[in-house]
């Protein structure tokens, strides 16, 4: 563990608390992509199956359980409690365009041909693109509530902070995980446009609006 990974994980935690706070205080999941949230449940469940087979640390176990539980809770909020505020007609990204290629990539790039490794690899690839339905929705509506942009910023910062973590681990432990690094760079790259608007508008006190 190093500070980059630790703050990355904290940022990830913060993003989830911000999202739950947004939904429960505004009593609305308007502006949030259900598809992206469903993909995160898939990512966490397929990656953290090893909860039952290998123990890393108490920190690791608690975080894994939290990510699975909180992502399921968000689906519950969107699908049951605040269902009327969820508008599927603007959440139109086709999931098969994401899931299909991730299955293929996992079959080609993995650290072993067994179910655990294949699902782990699949989850890494899927996580890297899981935000696309959300970003696509943002692009379509052209604007976002400020709290939603804070959620996205925290979520983007999480994987961005993993990059210095990997550099640090390479030099301190000789640890290299090419699958995570490649997918992590892609994942962070997808946020660049968003971050540009976030830093130049939202953090200057303006509303998040995309040029028409």
């Amino acid at each position: 563990m190093n500070i980059f990974r630790f703050f990355g994980d904290l940022s990830h935690l913060a993003s989830i608390f911000i999202l739950i706070h947004k939904i429960t205080t505004t009593r609305s999941c308007r502006g949030i992509s259900f598809k992206t949230q469903a993909l995160y449940v898939t990512v966490f469940v397929t990656r953290y199956l090893d909860l039952f087979t290998s123990y890393v640390s108490l920190y690791n176990t608690v975080m894994k359980i939290f990510f699975i539980a909180s992502s399921c809770y968000i689906l519950y909020l969107m699908r049951v409690r605040y269902r009327p505020t969820n508008d599927p007609s603007i959440d139109t990204f086709r999931l098969e365009y994401l899931v299909g290629p991730c299955v293929v990539l996992a079959l080609i790039f993995n650290y072993g041909y067994n179910p655990t490794e294949l699902l782990w690899s699949f989850s890494i690839f899927l996580e890297s693109v899981a935000i696309l339905p959300q970003l696509f929705m943002l692009q379509r509506t052209g604007e976002a509530e400020t709290i939603t942009t804070h959620y996205l910023a925290a979520l983007g910062a999480y994987r961005a902070l993993y990059i210095p973590n990997w550099i640090y681990r390479y030099f301190s432990e000789g640890y290299v995980d090419p699958i995570s690094v490649t997918a992590g760079l892609v994942q962070t790259g997808l946020y660049l446009d968003f971050f540009y608007v976030y830093f130049t508008k939202v953090l200057q006190g303006q509303k998040f609006e995309l040029p028409a």
């Binding site: 890393v56 690791n60 990510f67 072993g112 041909y113 490794e117 993993y162 995980d177």
Partner: peptide, 10 residues
């Protein structure tokens, strides 16, 4: 590519 890495990251 058959050597499994330790999965200690989240």
């Amino acid at each position: 590519s058959e050597s499994s890495l330790p999965k200690d990251e989240l």
